[in-house]
Design a binder for these strands. Sequence first.
DNA 1: ATGCCTTTGTGAACGCGTGCACAAAGACGG
DNA 2: CCGTCTTTGTGCACGCGTTCACAAAGGCAT
Lengths: 251, 251
Amino acid sequence: MATGRNHRPATRSRGIPEATVARLPLYLRALTALSERSVPTVSSEELASAAGVNSAKLRKDFSYLGSYGTRGVGYDVEYLVYQISRELGLTQDWPVVIVGIGNLGAALANYGGFASRGFRVAALIDADHAMTGAQVAGLPVQHVDDLETIIRTNGVSIGVITTPGSAAQQVCDRLVGAGITSILNFAPTVLSVPDGVDVRKVDLSIELQILAFHEQRKATDELARNGGPGPSGAPPDDQGPEGDIPAVMPA
Amino acid sequence: MATGRNHRPATRSRGIPEATVARLPLYLRALTALSERSVPTVSSEELASAAGVNSAKLRKDFSYLGSYGTRGVGYDVEYLVYQISRELGLTQDWPVVIVGIGNLGAALANYGGFASRGFRVAALIDADHAMTGAQVAGLPVQHVDDLETIIRTNGVSIGVITTPGSAAQQVCDRLVGAGITSILNFAPTVLSVPDGVDVRKVDLSIELQILAFHEQRKATDELARNGGPGPSGAPPDDQGPEGDIPAVMPA
DNA sequence: ATGCCTTTGTGAACGCGTGCACAAAGACGG
DNA sequence: CCGTCTTTGTGCACGCGTTCACAAAGGCAT
């Protein structure tokens, strides 16, 4: 029991909740920092604080991986780094292609975070003939005509799309056709992919709009607080912003 | 202090669920495309398909905004564009500062998606004196020494951090000190901010690691299906973590 | 060896988000 | 003006994720 190695949750591969998977890289980063400082063990409280999460959540997350902690002591940093790395598949090499070598694509190619954990930029691809052969981040830009060959030759299964939105779906289709099964999409487009292909999107515009929403809310809250009690009989400042009726009702 | 205790009830924002807010920009984008094609009305089914979500979800989302549809007909595109824009606060101008003008910062400065919806890059800031005065995306790079002045002068409330991870928290503290209340963080660091400040993070490394996890799982599933005895109870019903999982989590 | 003290691992409750299914509402043809 | 047909808006149930709270587990001092 102590070795809970093959203690696979009844529902086989589905054992680890998606939300937990999304936090594992966060834990790994914090653990790596501890490892570099030669810290031998860490408690769930300390590690949770470093990762910016709740300690109970962290313990539950780790419980999905197995019992890797020691009660009364905490977790062995090195061991945990290894276990999480293995769970995330970072002990193997993941060649990645970047399609669309504009400003953003070039920035990603130069981004150190890529290479840091088993990810290797295998190729840079662009549709512009004028760019073909140019060196970006020490790699030659190759033409999109050779996309399928490049992917198959290098055994690439992860693709990053940094093209304009108008080209994204077309590129995506070709990537999937060539065997890519995981896509990180920076283009402002909803990609359609067949079952079995994972897509994650990073959308700067959407992030800003979400921030703007909260920013606006903060501004109106502030205004309501300072701008006068108002004869409408609304309580000036009740702790709960609840009961707030939409400011403008359509006629 | 400033131990990021972002305790967000998620339902606090004027009754609009956080998950809905995160989808509004998606709807807005689809609606804008329809508007440009002069499509007068759209059904929840059509719009949902264009935005890549479930139609029931879309209708429920809109129900939080009010009853802007017409039964038997659908939604008026122009009206909905306006309502969502207003709700998201996009009818006003949002000056933004970008701190850290490396490859990524420069890429963002050039990114068209910024200016597209009320967002305006008000200033570029970097700690490197050698960069001060250089033109990036038509704007002069200013030194971080003037950060507070720049922010106050331009009335900026949204900051984008594209510095190395080691500088992120320091920059963050100064931004907050200068009055910034919304931060989009690209640095691979957990930022601590006081209450009242929103932080959203975009972490390329984490996204890749999540993809790698699923990629590894797909590989082992495949292996088990081909290599192992079939009747071990592994039906191919596994549709995978399909769908558009937002790549950015609220901090 | 024993008892105390720390920390893990987890059962259970709760709350949010999602999707179903259907009644209400309105357009439209006759 | 009425019936039919389309589509919205939503009550309800379900499942996932989060959090609390605590018993079990193990180190450590005596």
